[in-house]
Amino acid sequence: MSVKFAQNPNSAFRIIDGEAVILVPERQTLHRLADVGLRVWELACEGKAEEQISKRIAEEYEVEADKAEREAKEFLELLVKNGIIIPQSE
């Protein structure tokens, strides 16, 4: 089953000049996301599942499905690792 995600509720963010600036207070870290990375994060924050996210990325950026799936998965893992998003249990 594909994992769903959500914004880390502790985080704060702003979209500034088309890029997301995200603060994770419990880690005192600041992150910046642009372009595809920003889109993946937005979809994750909307509660979309990994599968849905990679599908949307493949459509919106016109890339092959397996490439989108692989890269979206990798990026989502990075977002989770940095506490920017959190996986949701069903």
Binding site: I16, D17, V21, T29, L30, H31, R32, L33, A34, D35, V36, G37, L38, V40, I57, A58, Y61, E62, V63, K67, A68, E71, F75, L78, L79, N82, I84
Partner: peptide, 29 residues
């Protein structure tokens, strides 16, 4: 834009960018 374009790399790198660099960009912007 293709997912493998340089912008994707930028996005990925940005997650682990140095906070000082992000602050600099943020302040300037």
């Amino acid at each position: 834009m293709a997912l493998s374009s340089p912008r994707v790399s930028e996005s990925k790198t940005a997650v682990e960018e140095k906070p000082a660099d992000i602050y600099s960009w943020l302040l300037a912007t």
